[in-house]
Design a binder for these strands. Structure first.
Length: 556
RNA sequence: UGGGGUGUCGCCAAGUGGUAAGGCAACGGGUUUUGAUCCCGUCAUUCGUAGGUUCGAGUCCUACCACCUCAGCCA
């Protein structure tokens, strides 16, 4: 059995199951509605998994709809990136991609309908005045002096707004609801504003744009969405969502449900703050491997299924919590442990010379890529001079170093022979520069015949046949568990060591791998060939996540 | 001090009146040609607090407390 909880066992799935079984809904239709003003992040992944997942689970469909009502902040780059991310995560939207801007004509007509019904009016209050009229959380607002304009006048004014006869900010169209409502969203919310901006989809056709509140629910209705799932902060908007649906001749009545957005420690998940990291060049871009963006996690080496599993693991509820980033790390390790081929890379090399081997010794050793999966094997050149990790050799034996290579002791070269150290050289600084050893005969796949077993196993690479690679060692981007909740600006909590560029010597087979191939570099961690920079001539590997460390070892 | 929400183990989360699932983390122990993986075990007499109803309450009632959220011509 998998350790991932049963799929779709959350309150949204239960509501849908109920609606389906009592015939309220025939086929579930959900939608994922990003605004193309940034890249998708891990929080969106939760929403994607919920929306697409629940549709899939109940044989329905999920639309991808861009909520593109604010042209000034949106662009095509984001649209392309978002589509890419959703597909990479493993989901398919139903039919064509939708845009809220597809419905601008209909929305305009519905705005006219509202005016005709006496449910909307053009208001000339300046933003500053409007704020004063709105009241506060504890005091009712006051009616706008323009609230009682006639239907004819409103129709005429709204048409002039559309025709571009007013400057930006000169006036807005407002729904006429209740300025005394305890729900601020019902205090005559703005439904259309003037924005003389070019739109990435509709070009210069419009100079007035509908607001989110006036757009979202109606778009859902047009698309036949049955369950409109959004995050908790939109809860107060639900009465407004329902007000529009009730007061407009929409084709169906979608229902809005809210769930708690994802918060994770050592991470920021707000587009504004993510954009800040990009704009301040803290990272190299939205897809930097340290970013919690989907494209960043992808470049880091996270797999789609690891992210999906993570989303199943954290569940969906109406309570807002702070998820331990260790859960995400677990999801990644779990997937990579099960599926990633193994390979070897030496990061802090020290040379080992095997004295009982001829100078030109070259032997190809078959090394299986995985201990459980049938992934085949590669050949590792075994030569007289090797590299092992400096940390794996100790000048003197001690209990703490019981599995290390020490003079007089034996070590197993992973997938290869057993070696016995005979001596070593040091430089003036006291660093070991070379280890001398002898190979114990007939130890390929079997223990030494004399019964003296090796103490431990080390990874290695041929000193003469390995390939130098660039290693990008990533750690968490922030060194504060809640960087956006501290007194200081979140940028001061950026971990200065979040990226360390190092060198590694990899076995020849690794230079040939395609970008985005993941490996476990044995005893080092999970690495991925960089999506953009890796080539056979200049291999580049990103550290996805380290191996879990033994506690005793970690303490030392 | 208005409205809307949420409070179950360090973290996430099941549970919807019948006597507290699971995952992560942590901690013991075993296996191992990766100090990884894997395996086995420990980890809430208690569900924000205080009362009440009931044979029986995390689940029902009352009051209180804490936290989140709403005053963009953002979404």
């Amino acid at each position: 059995m998998s350790d991932v909880p049963a799929r779709g066992n959350n309150f949204v799935a239960k509501i849908i199951e109920e609606d389906l079984s009592n015939g309220k809904v025939e086929r579930v239709i959900t939608r994922f509605p990003p605004e193309p003003n940034g890249y998708l992040h891990v929080g969106h992944a939760k929403s994607i998994c919920l929306n697409f997942g629940v549709a899939q689970q109940f044989g329905g469909g999920c639309n991808l709809r861009f909520d593109d009502t604010n042209p000034e902040k949106e662009n095509q780059e984001f649209i392309d990136a978002i589509k890419d991310d959703v597909q990479w995560l493993g989901f398919n939207w139903e039919g064509e991609v939708h845009y809220a801007s597809d419905y601008f004509d209909q929305l305009f007509q519905w705005a006219v309908h509202l005016i005709e019904q006496g449910n909307a009016y053009v208001c000339d209050l300046s933003p500053e005045q409007a704020r004063q009229y709105r009241g506060t959380l504890t005091e009712a607002g006051q009616n706008s002096p323009y609230r009682d304009r006639s239907v004819e006048e409103n129709l005429e004014l709204f048409e002039k707004m559309r025709a571009g006869e007013f400057d930006e900010g000169a006036c807005v169209l407002r729904a006429k609801i209740d300025m005394a409502s305890s729900n601020m969203n019902l205090r005559d919310p703005i439904i259309y504003r003037i924005r003389k901006a070019h739109h990435h989809q509709t070009g210069d056709k419009w100079c007035i744009y509908p607001t989110y509140d006036f757009t979202h629910g109606q778009s859902d209705a047009i698309e036949g969405v049955t369950h409109s799932i959004c995050t908790l902060e939109f809860e107060d908007h639900r009465p407004l969502y329902e007000w529009f649906i009730a007061n407009l001749p929409v084709p169906c009545e979608p229902k809005q449900y809210e769930f708690g957005r994802l918060n994770m420690d050592y991470t920021v998940t707000s587009k504004r703050k993510l954009k800040g990291l990009v704009d301040n060049a803290v990272v190299t871009g939205w897809s930097d491997p340290r970013m919690p963006t989907i494209s960043g996690m992808r470049r880091r080496g996270f797999t789609p299924s690891s992210i999906r599993n993570f989303c199943e693991m954290i569940g969906v509820t109406r309570s807002d919590g702070l998820v331990d980033i260790a859960m995400l790390e677990h999801a990644v390790r779990d997937d990579l442990n099960k599926n990633a081929p193994r390979a070897m890379c030496v990061i802090n090399p020290v040379k080992v010379v095997i004295e009982n081997l001829p100078q030109d010794h070259l032997e190809q050793l078959a090394a299986p890529y995985h201990h459980e999966l049938e992934l085949g094997s590669r050949e590792m050149p075994f030569t007289r001079e090797l590299y092992i990790d400096r940390e794996d050799f100790k000048e003197e034996y001690s209990k703490k170093f019981k599995k290390k290579f020490t003079p007089g002791n034996r070590i197993r070269l992973r997938h290869s022979y057993v070696l016995e150290a005979t001596g070593f050289d040091k430089n003036e600084q006291g660093d070991v520069t070379e280890i001398r050893a002898v190979l114990i005969e007939n130890t390929l796949g079997v223990d030494p015949e004399d019964g003296i077993k090796p103490k431990g196993v080390v990874h290695w690479v041929s000193a003469t046949h390995s390939v130098e690679a660039e290693l990008r060692l990533y750690q968490r981007l922030f060194n504060h568990p809640t960087p956006d909740k501290s007194e200081d600006d979140y940028l001061v909590h950026v971990n200065p060591d979040s990226l360390v560029v190092a060198k590694g010597w990899v076995e020849p087979a690794l230079a040939q791998v395609t970008p985005e191939s993941s490996f476990q570099f044995e005893r080092e961690g999970y690495y991925v060939a960089d999506r953009y920079d890796h080539t056979a001539d200049a291999p580049v590997f990103n550290l996805t996540i380290g191996l879990r460390e033994d506690k005793e070892l970690a303490k030392g």
